[in-house]
Design a protein around this nucleic acid. Structure first.
Lengths: 408, 408
DNA sequence: GTGAAAGCGCTAACAA
DNA sequence: TTGTTAGCGCTTTCAC
């Protein structure tokens, strides 16, 4: 492997300074460089080069082995009564031809595609998406299943279409992270198709679906207790709410179930500790960097600002990090932070971020297992499975008892 | 939506201290709580409840509309000569029946599944995986395509099987992040199936595939220049190498192309700046937290340790963060850091991490576009498309000129 | 403008 | 033990 020959690049490093990040903005113009181009040579197998016009079918195999289609199918599928010698002959023919079964045809015949559909919201709580996707894909493969993935960007109309498309593709079942919506006809319709559906991350009240969720209420409550045990008395709560424009102190009527449960848990924790309403700083904002950063700023600018901020998800936590950084406030000293969902970076940075960890991989695994079980044996009772959260205490929460009281 | 009724949870927060992170270890035992269970009520459409035994087919639609299958197909597919009135009748019948076309059957008939296969390595450079996956899924959907996703965990045998399975599922094309291997017969075989294949992230020499990659050589070279412009003279290079056991200073013969190019770029940057061989601290290690953390430690423990560490990927960067944190070394002051791939957290934390940013979304989009173009019009010449990287200078690289010389 | 019939590749009755 | 045949649901000639 040789290094790429690159066109000379001027040293732009000094001029760069802090430029925009591709993660948050659109990308720089694309420079396309064709390093080398070559003819597309097709690699053919040793023999039968002549008839390689189309992929060999089972008829080709049968012909070559001198048997009927049915026999070839039996030989390859290892079922029914069949002579060992025939099996060998058929297998050799298949091998020689480079035969690859057409799963589409097979699926159509037997009515099972060995495929599940995953409908997910990528733009939300990213610390969840990548882990659960991997878990689902891996668990599915373990059981011989493939995963068709779609992304809804938290739009329920797109979700409806995605479910529709997946059903048309004849998936055997669905795993859905439901977006907030009043209208779940499309999920009802999913059941109609006779195919089971599994909700993850969020539950949907009043709909007869199994959901794998986490005990975010207890997790949030526990996080507040932890903070209080370290001396925090003025608490800030930064809650992401899709239904909100910009920022508000008013709790919106509609919250996604996870956020709802976290909110309730925070509230309960504060209530149980006897924190006055005036020492609870609630702020609800849309999941946009601008809004969430403004929200953090407004929290910090109050007369008696909170000593700690609890965030409802990863994006809000990043906003806290960012605004605190801009103001030269040190997390875990000048301002404390607790958020939901663990991640590699939360564990690696200084200070480590204290998180309400959820068993994300377990959610994915369980969802697949339950789904496949339901596929194999339909009509099982619906239930909501709640997995426990764990508080991972790191150093983003200051111990105010150790430090003595701070200003004001 | 009502809060979950949770069983009383004792306050464990004080006992917790720093416990293990689920991200790096296996999970705690799962507690399953059935919060509520109810009968599975199936929601049926308004009419034709009686015959809802199986999903309606086009024959059902045709019968109800009083036309033949062919006419129904034409009406629904909007092709051929057909009376407007008939179209309306058929559409109404379809609507009433809740008809949903069977894409499997359609695909079999016309030979196009409108599905592409994505073969990816999830465990490697995670800052890449989630972004590129989302980009691919979204771009595919834009063109009416779905994505079948598989994960190889960097194992080339699993990759072979994954490609095989995807081809059996009759995907129209493949996007692959190739794992390091000598043996690419299975990719040759993919071509054989007549289906185009697109490499992303890494190129493969001596194989006639189009690849969408980034100019990691220039990116790495540029990063070194940047560091040198800020006064760094002793450089550490922490390179992730799958082929290595544990840690070594010896450059392995086999490196994934991205890592190879980064290594070459670093080397070139150091060479051009006249950095002595003894001031270049090279270390190659497997992509395991234990190894990479040991590698970082060994770098820091040297007599004349580097003032900056360049890492070849996200995982290595996290190792630097972690070890530095444990030693109470501040990034961007006591030790500097540059890595590859931007991420939200790299931008949000303090200090912000200086990164060689790659247009990851652009890679995904381009891969899909080229793949679909190749599907529509096969036989286009193979080429390697190289996208530019951008150095995003943040604060993880100390300006040694400003600070004066440090100890030693 | 519409219908009859063939066939995509496969499996599973039913015969032989 | 093997072959014949039907058919999964759809599209698409080719007649009418």
């Amino acid at each position: 492997m040789s290094p790429l020959t690159t066109s000379p690049v001027r040293d732009r490093s000094r001029k760069l300074g802090n430029i925009y990040s591709p993660v948050q903005e659109t990308f720089m113009q694309v420079r396309r460089v064709t390093v080398r181009s070559r003819k597309c040579e097709v690699i053919l197998p040793d023999e039968d080069v002549t008839q390689a016009a189309h992929s060999p079918t089972i008829v080709d195999v049968a012909t070559r082995a001198g048997v009927s289609r049915a026999t070839a199918s039996r030989a390859l599928g290892h079922y029914g009564r069949i002579a060992p010698a025939t099996i060998k002959r058929v297998e050799q023919a298949a091998e020689a031809l480079g035969y690859r079964p057409n799963e589409l045809a097979r699926a159509m015949r037997i009515g099972i595609t060995k495929t599940i559909g995953l409908v997910i919201i990528t733009d939300f709580t990213n610390a969840f998406f990548d882990r659960v996707t991997k878990a689902i894909v891996d668990e599915a493969k373990l059981h011989g299943y493939q995963v068709l993935i779609t992304n809804t960007d938290e739009d329920s109309e797109i979700e409806r279409q995605a479910v529709e498309t997946l059903l048309e593709k004849q998936v055997d079942g669905l795993i859905v992270v439901p977006s907030l919506s009043k209208n779940y006809d499309h999920l009802g319709a999913a059941k109609l198709g006779g195919r089971p559906i599994m909700l993850i991350d969020r539950r949907l009240d009043n709909l007869p679906f199994t959901a794998i969720i986490t005990d975010d209420f207890a997790g949030a409550q526990n996080a507040v207790r932890h903070a209080i045990s370290l001396g925090h008395k003025r608490l800030g709560f930064l809650i992401s709410a899709a239904s909100v424009e910009n920022v508000t102190a008013q709790r919106p009527a509609e919250l996604v179930s996870t956020v709802f449960d976290r909110t309730e848990g925070f509230l309960r924790g504060a209530f149980d500790a006897g924190i006055k309403r005036s020492d609870q700083h609630w702020i609800f904002c849309e999941d946009e960097p601008k809004s969430s950063e403004a929200a953090v700023a407004s929290l910090l600018d109050r007369p008696n600002p909170p000593t700690i901020i609890f965030t409802s998800n990863n994006d809000m936590a990043l906003a806290v990090l960012k605004v605190a950084g801009n103001r030269r406030l040190t997390i875990g000293r000048d301002i404390s932070l607790v958020t939901v969902d663990d991640s590699q970076w939360a564990a690696a940075i200084v200070p480590g971020i204290t998180v309400i960890a959820r068993p994300v991989e377990e959610i994915g695994r369980l969802a697949v297992q339950r789904l496949l079980s339901e596929i194999a044996d339909p009509g099982q009772p619906t239930e909501i499975v709640v997995l426990p959260t764990t508080l991972i205490a790191r150093d983003s929460v200051a111990n105010l008892y150790l430090e003595g009281f701070r200003s004001s």
